Amino acid sequence: AGDPSFKTWAQDEAKDGTVRTGVWEATPGEVRSIKGETFEFCHILSGVVEITPDDGEPVVYRAGDSFVMKPGFVGGWKTIETVRKIYVTVG
């Protein structure tokens, strides 16, 4: 929903590609999120998001919050206020 845009500033990657780090930004809107086999640690630097697993309740994260999206996650990612996060993916 909406017309979100995304920016990624990749910072580092393991030689085998299994670990990646960087900063990611999204403008307001909604998208589907499917994690597959990847763990993702996120730390919100600015903004507000609401994440709703297909089989669960929505959770709101704001600047200063951290969370992990586990392998197999499927759900909605709603950017309420332009969000910028630090990420580390493993998988």
Rank of each mutant, 00 (worst) to 15 (best):
G2N: 09
G2Q: 09
D3T: 15
D3N: 13
P4G: 07
P4K: 01
P4D: 04
K7R: 09
K7I: 00
T8N: 14
T8K: 06
W9G: 13
A10L: 15
A10P: 15
Q11E: 12
D12N: 15
D12L: 11
E13G: 07
A14C: 04
K15C: 06
K15S: 15
T18V: 10
T18H: 08
T18R: 06
T18P: 00
T18M: 12
V19N: 00
V19F: 01
V19R: 00
R20E: 07
T21A: 14
T21E: 05
G22T: 00
G22W: 02
W24S: 10
W24K: 05
E25Q: 13
E25N: 08
E25P: 03
T27S: 09
P28T: 02
P28G: 05
P28L: 06
G29F: 08
G29A: 10
V31W: 07
V31F: 06
R32V: 05
I34K: 13
K35A: 15
K35R: 08
G36L: 03
G36N: 03
T38N: 02
F39L: 10
F39G: 00
E40L: 08
F41C: 03
F41K: 11
H43Y: 11
H43L: 05
I44R: 09
I44T: 11
L45Q: 13
L45A: 08
L45K: 11
L45N: 06
S46A: 15
G47W: 02
G47H: 02
G47E: 04
V48A: 06
V48I: 13
E50W: 07
I51H: 03
D55T: 06
D55Y: 01
G56W: 12
G56Q: 10
E57W: 12
E57V: 12
V60I: 15
Y61P: 02
D65L: 06
D65E: 13
S66C: 09
V68H: 13
M69Q: 08
K70R: 13
P71V: 01
P71C: 07
F73W: 05
V74F: 00
V74I: 05
G75I: 07
G75Q: 07
G75R: 03
G76V: 13
G76K: 14
G76T: 15
W77L: 04
K78T: 10
I80S: 06
E81W: 00
K85Q: 04
Y87L: 08
Y87R: 06
V88F: 07
V88T: 15
T89W: 02
V90P: 00
V90N: 07
V90L: 14
G91I: 03
G91T: 01
